[in-house]
Write a protein that binds this DNA or RNA. Structure first.
Lengths: 242, 242
DNA sequence: GGAGCCCGATGGCCCAGTTCAACGACACTT
DNA sequence: AAGTGTCGTTGAACTGGGCCATCGGGCTCC
């Protein structure tokens, strides 16, 4: 046996798959900084995780920033009695783990097998001084996250179950398109329970609402892991409260 | 993240009222940057607004960053049919208006007469190159906001009316203490309607829940604009799902 | 291959919170 | 001081979505 059997595998070829995602990922190189990717790749590590694996938990010391090379991740917070709020679904090119000394504000868990790039926070901060553009990009990403969080608050606080589910499908579709997935079906790597905890609903209501959309011809449900938006415009209308 | 979070500052006599708030405000100078306050004050403008005045609206071009010198401000988003989600209540020392080129993600409105400091975004960005610590502090504040937003998602998606109102009172109390207000009563400068739209409830439910807390001896309601937390620990317990 | 298990779908009932309505307390105006 | 508008409280009835129970399909593991 001339081979290692390391679970956190080293990836041959490119030093960081994530950088292929370019402008979507915060480690993507910019036009004017030819030396930046190599500096970054020198300090980043890769983590290979199976599905339903925990990346870190709420309150853990925030040691790394993560970026998703492949796979899907969810973020969530818990109440003491087990009630859960999923605050984000993340896919290839997305990043997470931005936190202060108080520790991570949420738990991060894979939904599928996933390859993550991670950067030690301390080392990244040292690099900020040399590559200011890096910090600028991180601030931009934080602002994007903030806008998404505000949008989700509007959904959770003021939308009906029907509007919530429509918003969810439209959001997944838009983000899949942004990642270059233009197929007819949107991937649903998360469970119905995850969807319910993301939308502030119960599993039953999510299930019923999806069934109703299917009966109304708005969507197709070829299998549990996919949805086809047959009437995307109508869904967008429903999502916005029409 | 001490590097992001280093907002501790001693405030000498400064031309900007906002800087009196020291560590709370992002324009407060740091120990090592003696020339920073003057650079900042050179580019900041002050805005004096009456109560219930609009600072900017969702979608407006994001020209300035704002910091509250005195008064109280609310942020909110609207659905097309008028449903509203208040996403934040802000007080002296808080800042808002962080946005990218897509424009502001929310509307900002005063709840009381307010004195705001504002910084032109473009000029501030130019200053980032000279004073990197500024950008670091802004990133730290954005991360704080993000954690608060996640906490609010948990509240909106998974807490009961009783837990929501308790959380709201406890949050106001904690933040008032942070601003140095240690009196017996918490100020409620917002209307019942604002509270309802912040908690994802109706005015009636907020009113009934406050009355119930008062009957149970948990709070006092000396007048419409104040609440006294008589059993703060019990309220904290309720807020966390106990 | 079948026993057990997990997950999602569906039906029926129920309740927390909404909706509708009335009313009282102020503040401002004439 | 009477008229009017705004805001908060309270009561009564309603309902959207939660809760509980059942069922069925696909999976893993003997």
């Amino acid at each position: 046996m001339a081979q290692f059997n390391d679970t956190s595998a080293e990836i041959p070829g490119t030093p960081c798959l994530i950088c292929e995602h370019g402008s979507l990922a915060f480690c993507g190189p910019g036009p004017g900084d030819a030396d930046e990717p190599s500096r970054l790749s020198a300090m980043l590590g890769q983590v290979n995780l199976i599905a339903h694996d925990s990346v870190f938990r709420e309150g853990d010391p925030a040691t790394h920033l993560y970026s998703i090379s492949s796979g899907a991740v969810k973020l969530y917070k818990l109440l003491s009695d087990g009630r859960r709020q999923v605050t984000a679904f993340l896919f290839a090119g997305d990043f997470f783990g931005l936190a202060l000394d108080g520790g991570y504000a949420y738990t991060a868990e894979t939904m599928t097998p996933a390859l993550l790039c991670r950067f030690p926070r301390r080392k990244l901060e040292a690099l900020f001084a040399e590559v200011p553009r890096l910090e600028r990009r991180l601030l931009g990403l934080a602002i994007d996250d903030l806008a998404a969080a505000h949008e989700q608050m509007l959904l959770l606080g003021r939308k009906t179950a029907r509007e919530k589910v429509a918003s969810f499908l439209v959001m997944l579709d838009r983000r899949a398109a942004r990642r270059g997935h233009h197929g007819p079906a949107v991937a649903l790597p998360m469970s119905r329970s995850d969807i319910a905890d993301y939308l502030g609903l119960t599993i039953e209501t999510v299930s019923r609402t999806l069934t109703q959309f299917r009966r109304d011809g708005l969507i197709g449900l070829p299998d549990l892991g996919h949805a086809v938006l047959r009437e995307a415009d109508r869904l967008r209308q429903i999502a916005d409260g029409g």
